[in-house]
């Protein structure tokens, strides 16, 4: 779906590369978590994925289409992006207008627009709010509306660029549940950028960035094994993984490394009933 071949990008020649000879491949319908500390290059990677930036060196392609000055407009239709601050993304006076904005820009006929807006809002469970003013919504609801705005354009990939950062814990949960729900009803590739590894745990695969390079790639369980190494590059494994590693050192071995509290408690329950 998305391919990077030795991609470099530099904002300023004197400062070295923000993304440095990066090669990676994201499959269709994969949910990728792209993680790394602030300044590791992950947001630059996101901007290279939807043509907001063009590589200084190397090639990017999205579903077979190579990114260039001639194609970035087409690529942006394929790759939608949800940003950090939901406030900055609103232009309409009602939720419905707002979701329609992108379609209007692309010159869709009205009938088609109405249909798409309604179905996108239903997909993120915000249809009931269609006539409300976006500024009266909670942070999590605002991000859901922002997602609907992107769904309406029907992209193949949605990038969430630290989209949970400004949300409270309930809002974060709401966002992750919305993505989980979407993946059940339709095929789409998700790139979820975060520095919170407990959120990254929801993904099929984690790509860890450091100093503009891919530092590691693997399933969440595999990546979380590298607790000390991750901490050296400024990341922290989820609390449950830390607790489990303490248990593990003191002789408790579970069948699979728990990613969430429920996985830990369920397995402990099984284990203790055998003791």
């Amino acid at each position: 779906m998305i391919e990077f071949n030795k991609v470099s990008y530099s904002y300023d020649k004197n400062r070295g590369n923000a993304v440095d000879e990066l090669s990676l491949f994201i499959e269709q319908n994969e949910w990728i978590a792209l993680i790394g500390h602030n300044g590791s290059g992950k947001s630059t990677v996101a901007k290279l994925m939807n043509g907001l930036l063009l590589p200084t060196e190397g090639n990017v392609s999205v579903s077979g289409l190579p990114l260039s000055e001639d194609t970035y407009w087409d690529i942006r239709k394929k790759v939608g992006m949800v940003f950090q601050n939901p406030e900055n993304q609103f232009v309409g006076t009602t939720v419905m207008d707002d979701v329609a904005f992108g379609l209007e820009n692309l010159g869709f006929p009205r009938e088609e627009m109405v249909k798409r807006v309604a179905s996108a809002l239903k997909e993120v469970d915000m249809y009931a709010f269609k006539d409300q003013a976006p500024n009266r919504l909670s942070g999590g609801q605002k991000q859901r509306v922002a997602i609907a705005g992107i769904l309406a354009i029907m992209p193949e990939v949605i990038i969430f660029d630290e989209a949970s950062t400004m949300l409270d814990p309930n809002g974060k949960k709401e966002l992750l549940e919305t993505i989980k729900g979407l993946r059940k009803i339709k095929k789409m590739t998700i790139v979820y950028i975060t520095h919170d590894l407990s959120e990254a745990a929801y993904a099929d695969r984690i790509i860890v960035m450091n100093e503009g390079k891919q530092w590691m790639s693997g399933k969440p369980r595999e990546v979380f094994q590298y607790r000390d190494e991750l901490s050296e590059i400024g990341l922290e494994i989820p609390l449950i993984s830390s607790i489990y590693s303490g248990m593990n050192k003191h002789g408790v071995k579970l069948e699979k490394e728990p990613l969430h509290m429920k996985e830990l408690v369920d397995q402990l329950w099984k284990l203790s009933s055998k003791m």
Binding site: I243, M247, K249, H250
Partner: peptide
């Protein structure tokens, strides 16, 4: 990790 030890 100390909590993990306590649980173990």
């Amino acid at each position: 990790s100390e909590l993990g030890k306590d649980i173990a």
